[in-house]
Design a protein around this nucleic acid. Structure first.
Length: 547
DNA sequence: AGCCTATGCAGCC
DNA sequence: TGGCTGCCCTAGGC
């Protein structure tokens, strides 16, 4: 092309100023239109129009304050102090419904932050719904009070070089926590002797998605990774063998690289079950260390299967979930493509689906539409969930997907732990708590946070027998425990308990008062100045604060 | 303090 | 269906 053609087709530059009134900005537009139409050379006009058609609209350098979300003037989304103000032009960031923002979301009220049961059973008449609520199975009893302490102590350790992606407690050694990260490292942490840890860096080469201890020998652990292998590792020696490798020929491009996500062990059948990012399920015999049978398509072809869970009571039942927006229940005795017993539909990707840990009769799923879904009985009607609980656990490409995890100790099978995405203003600090939710009611039972932890905690696991919560937040691991000598707290009022550390000095009893968004003088925005120094390990004492 | 970026999904054509 | 683009509360490093 000739240089002059290039010159003439260069888009017009408009500068908008913040001080301009609406009037003057429209004048500018008119002026611009006028210039285009005034073009004496017909060719120039033609080219300008052509440029417009090609998407070369005038370059607009705007000095106006503009919303970073919708690019419109008049409002701004973002943090005001420690409170995030949504863009009003977009659907609510919490419940995803239009017409309001997170601040005014009906699912976010001061006493039950963001978490209430929703029926979403609009197709039924209200009487049927009430009838069902009244005559249906009564709500399970509330957790024993001592299990959710109002005071915790927190141990922190950071040895992963990338974000934590999976956690697993040792089944018999009560102080051992296993952690996997995005880089493929597997950490073994004795949080009883806080400084004792081992990090294995040679087991996997990328994301450790799921880990399970061997039911036969609890000194060995299986892990499924996005490198396409299942590892079987002796935790004492660190010696690891690969049970399966889906990429024997190495990297042949992104279209063919197979990654393993969902994994579970079936003790009765003696197999490791894994699923890949193409929708296939694989079964590996634990004793023979080899693949049994062919891969079975259990989710939409080409879509990622992110979770597998064997029913704890009925070993023939398998639960899977994936990026095709479904969770599916399978009968392992006759499993083949399209043979699922039930399909549990979701509106978005299903991050996790778990049977309840004791009876195996309930299911809780975490979906990227910001809803936890609960099925009260797998023997009942599975056409629609018993409850949907709006909860902020959005997808973010830089975060490990959130997964609501059962409390394995809860006899009522109603307590679930899940990290929260959106922050709340806790006396000037924007913190992302870890939520305990009673899935029988949708109630937020407790929220755990610490002013020193400003990062989001998407990975959480409750201890199989002790009152211990493990969390993975970015590259750090946290162990939350009831503080010694902590008196059990009655929960007669069913009130929410806020758990936090007492690291801040000036706060005193004011800490729980988060009603004022502008009280940012104690802490800077987002509470970043509270962040602990680069100590690799630090433990915090805690104090009780109620609101 | 502010810029940069790794990277998964969804929506668009 | 496939390839491309864009993204609302990230986190850490330079």
């Amino acid at each position: 092309m000739a240089p002059q053609t290039r010159r003439t087709s260069f888009p017009k530059v408009i500068i908008e100023k913040d001080t301009d009134s609406e009037q003057s900005s429209s004048e500018e537009e008119e002026e611009e239109e006028g210039e285009v139409s005034e073009g004496e050379n017909g060719k120039e006009v033609e080219e300008t129009l052509d440029a417009k058609r090609k998407g070369k609209s005038p370059i607009c350098i705007s000095l106006k304050k503009v919303c970073k979300v919708c690019k419109k003037a008049g409002h701004e989304a973002g943090f005001k102090g420690a409170t995030y103000i949504d863009c009003p032009m977009k659907p609510c960031f919490l419940c995803k419904m239009p017409g309001h923002t997170t601040m005014t979301c009906p699912h976010r009220v001061s006493t039950e932050y963001g978490v209430i049961p929703t029926s979403l059973r609009n197709s039924r008449n209200p009487f049927a719904y009430v009838f069902e609520r009244q005559l249906g199975p009564t709500n399970s009893r509330i957790k024993p009070a001592y299990v959710i302490p109002d005071q915790v102590s927190c141990a922190v350790i950071r040895y992963h070089s990338r974000r934590v992606t999976s956690l697993e407690f040792h089944p018999t050694n009560n102080n051992i926590l296993l952690s996997g990260d995005k880089k493929g490292q597997v950490g073994v942490w004795d949080f009883g002797k806080v400084y004792e840890k081992i990090v294995y860096g040679n087991i996997h080469s990328c994301i450790v998605n799921n880990m399970r201890f061997s039911p036969i020998n609890d000194g060995t652990v299986y892990a499924a990774s996005s490198d396409g292998t299942i590892s079987c590792t002796d935790l004492e020696t660190g010696i690891s063998l690969s049970l399966m490798n889906l990429n024997p020929d190495g990297w042949q491009g992104p279209g063919s690289w197979r990654m393993l996500y969902g994994m579970d062990l079936n003790k009765e059948k003696g197999v490791v079950l894994v699923a890949d990012n193409f929708g296939y399920l694989y079964s590996v015999d634990i004793r023979a260390n080899n693949k049994t049978g062919e891969a079975i398509l259990i989710h939409k072809r080409g879509s990622k299967v992110v979770g597998l869970h064997c029913n704890p009571v009925q070993p023939d039942l398998l639960l899977s979930c994936g990026n095709d927006h479904y969770a599916r229940i399978w009968d392992m005795r006759r499993i083949e493509a399209c043979s699922s017993l039930y399909e549990l539909a979701h509106k978005r990707v299903v991050n996790s689906a778990y049977f309840s840990p004791l009876s195996g009769s309930k299911i809780v799923t975490t979906s990227q539409d910001n809803r936890l879904r609960v099925w009260d009985s797998i023997f009942g009607n599975l056409d629609s969930p018993s409850r949907e609980i709006v909860h902020s656990h959005d997808f973010n490409r830089h975060l490990t997907p959130f997964r609501a995890e059962w409390d394995p100790k809860d006899p009522s099978e109603s307590l679930v732990v899940v990290g929260r995405y959106i922050s709340e203003n806790y006396n000037g600090a924007a913190l992302h708590p870890i939520d305990f939710i009673d899935i029988s009611t949708g109630q937020l039972v407790a929220e755990i946070m610490d002013p020193n932890i400003t990062t989001i905690s998407p990975v959480n696991k409750l201890h199989p027998c002790d009152d211990v919560l493990a969390s993975g937040s970015s590259r750090s691991l946290f162990i939350w425990r009831p503080k010694e000598k902590c008196e059990p707290v009655e929960q007669k009022d069913e009130g929410k308990i806020i758990v936090c550390s007492g690291a801040g000095k000036k706060r005193g009893g004011k800490f729980g008062d988060d009603s004022d968004a502008s009280d940012g003088d104690l802490f800077s925005s987002k509470g970043k100045n509270l962040k602990s120094k680069k100590s690799s390990l630090k433990s915090y004492k805690s104090q009780k604060v109620k609101r």
